[in-house]
Design a binder for these strands. Sequence first.
DNA 1: AAAATAGTGTCTGTAAGACATTATCTA
DNA 2: TAGATAATGTCTTACAGACACTATTTT
Lengths: 275, 275
Amino acid sequence: MAKERKRSDKRVAERAKPKRPGKGAATPRPAHGSSADGPGGFVTDDRPGVVVTVDVVLLAVHDGELAVLLVERRRGPDSGAWALPGTVVGLDETLGAAAVRAVSARTGVAAPLGRLDQFATFADVDRDPRTRVVSVAFVAVASEAVPPAGGPVASGRWWAVKELHKKKGPAMAFDHRDILATGVERVRSRIEHTDLATALVDEPFTLGELRRAYEAVWGTTLGPANFRRKVLATRGFVEPTGATRMVGTGRPADLYRRGADAVLHPPMLRPASSR
Amino acid sequence: MAKERKRSDKRVAERAKPKRPGKGAATPRPAHGSSADGPGGFVTDDRPGVVVTVDVVLLAVHDGELAVLLVERRRGPDSGAWALPGTVVGLDETLGAAAVRAVSARTGVAAPLGRLDQFATFADVDRDPRTRVVSVAFVAVASEAVPPAGGPVASGRWWAVKELHKKKGPAMAFDHRDILATGVERVRSRIEHTDLATALVDEPFTLGELRRAYEAVWGTTLGPANFRRKVLATRGFVEPTGATRMVGTGRPADLYRRGADAVLHPPMLRPASSR
DNA sequence: AAAATAGTGTCTGTAAGACATTATCTA
DNA sequence: TAGATAATGTCTTACAGACACTATTTT
């Protein structure tokens, strides 16, 4: 699990406010509705408690590469490092709602969060130097079109996952590199058994587009003929629309929509070379 | 280290076990931040916080049936109901350590916890009536011999999982029925792809015993011949000892030990009838 | 000998991997 | 026309399911 220890705050910035002594019982919930970096310190007392947060690994395929949405930290000693979008969970807020809130605050879209999947909880004692922070991690996927890279989002941008694994890649905050790696592996596994990959493409889509989504996630190439056979043999995976679309040169491709079934029988096993 | 002290909380009773005598069973159920616990309480006075706990689904096969270790609640909400062994996570304690502690306090054995697997985090807002409790759930498996059912454990006992799903079965505390169901499904899936099932039997074991472990977990019957072929075709799954053992009537069975590989290639897929 | 369980061998259907062939577009 | 991509078909191999058959024990 997580091991690194970075410095500075993790979520402090999110909610960080210098202290708030004497909170009245009637006082509004500290962890609610504030966006990142707002006031509302939760840990600052002399009586520290455990802080529960969510972090979201939002993946999409951009330019044929698997990409993840990160936000740049702008305060604290870890300023300049890139982090997964996350937030403190409100006292009366579900984890899923907090995850949606964390992403929508950064991207402006709540749509892709329908595929929200809680995959692990990170709780190393020292993962945040300030206080004990337990982070419930989610993965979600977005199609290529949403949100547009370089959009109106202030501090967020898409990074090719491949770049982040390099030593010379951008610094990542806290144990987020571990969370990312675990989340990516979860998606790599889930597209084998579920129709999650169809959420990576925009409807309607061609089987070539769907295949390239698989290839981006797995980092492999797949035989177009066999891929097609397996997809069409799995009932409920995709539904033909009857229409075709020109993609450039070559024969027009048949268009499909997402099917009804979320479970793939038999699974779309990734080639042994990609494991 | 500030280990927590709990008092009225959900897992208070459980975790309090070692120091049972003298524990004040006092505080009833304080709602958010109301009742001040004694010193070190996590539900800080007028400043309510989130409590993080672990709950463990410890499974074993008893009399051919999948069984789970539960403890009877004797105080607090749902008193009289049966709960998964769990505890509040200490401020400087890892989740895994807390899970081991929760189980060892009940069973006296830390051994089976090597197979500890975090599988989900439960955090419904109202899952505990007293305060917000976020529970990180683990599964672990024990072999038939340990701990012995009806052993020295005071408030714990094994229950056939099948019984707990019946309406007339024993009441389960909080959302522990959901946690159990999710954990069981995790184990059902994990024995397909890992050698986890070998931890359900004592070494050395026969392939018949291993097969009956699979059957208990999946609730199916498997063809002995095909099961044998698949197990032996998977390198690293089991290692022959060369010895044999009489089980009763019939030909003596070859004995095996656990192999080295944790991953099964190809997977031991459960029959479609058990899904 | 009968019953019971363990172990071995064989047939068959399904599906995956490799790859050749045909179809339909642009440049 | 060549080039590119999509769609279809074929051959081979791997493996799961079913099941017949042999082996070794107790009663």
